[in-house]
């Protein structure tokens, strides 16, 4: 089996990886920087990649590691996202209904933000990026069972937090 050319990897996966990074980082500028850094790393490492490797999971793994680094950096800058979202919620309050909707989303975003990074990534990879549990495990490290548990726990926690909200969406 032969690996595809690197240019094919850009064509095939850059859009979905960008969407993934936007979902994890929740900021398009950061996601764009991360995407470039991920592909540059992949470019340098590609000649040494095992021909039998799952390249898609491999790219997700590189992107995930970079995204986690970015998240840690941000966490040091204290609840960055919560404030940004709530600020936006206030600014967008054109109607009461819309304001509530915004607020609910901001709360949910904050809850996602509080998830352990592994759970958060597992949830996004499985539910929104369409990776199999095997691929999630390959992208995040660890077993398929751990990937399943991470997705389950992430949804569990979010549901709990969401359930506390006495708001109609």
């Amino acid at each position: 089996m032969t690996l595809p050319t690197f240019e094919m990897l850009v064509d095939a996966y850059s859009a979905e990886l960008f969407a993934y990074l936007v979902r994890i980082l929740r900021e398009a500028g950061d996601a764009q920087d991360c995407l470039q850094e991920a592909y540059l790393r992949a470019y340098r490492a590609y000649p040494r990649l095992d021909a039998r490797a799952n390249v898609r999971a491999w790219l997700y793994r590189i992107a995930t590691n970079l995204a986690f680094t970015q998240l840690r950096r941000r966490r040091r800058e204290a609840d960055w996202q919560v404030r940004a979202d709530e600020h936006q919620a206030a600014a967008d309050a054109s109607t009461a209904g819309r304001a509530i909707r915004r607020l609910v989303l901001a709360r949910l975003a904050a809850a996602v933000e509080r998830l352990p990074a592994q759970q958060r990534a597992a949830l996004v990879l499985r539910r929104y990026q369409g990776l199999s549990y095997g691929e999630v495990a390959a992208a995040l490290g660890g077993t398929e069972a751990a990937a399943r548990a991470n997705v389950y726990q992430a949804l569990q926690k979010l549901r709990e937090e969401f359930g506390d909200e006495e708001l109609d969406f």
Partner: peptide
């Protein structure tokens, strides 16, 4: 997305 891909 297209902008991000072009920059990439």
């Amino acid at each position: 997305t297209a902008r991000a891909q072009a920059a990439l």
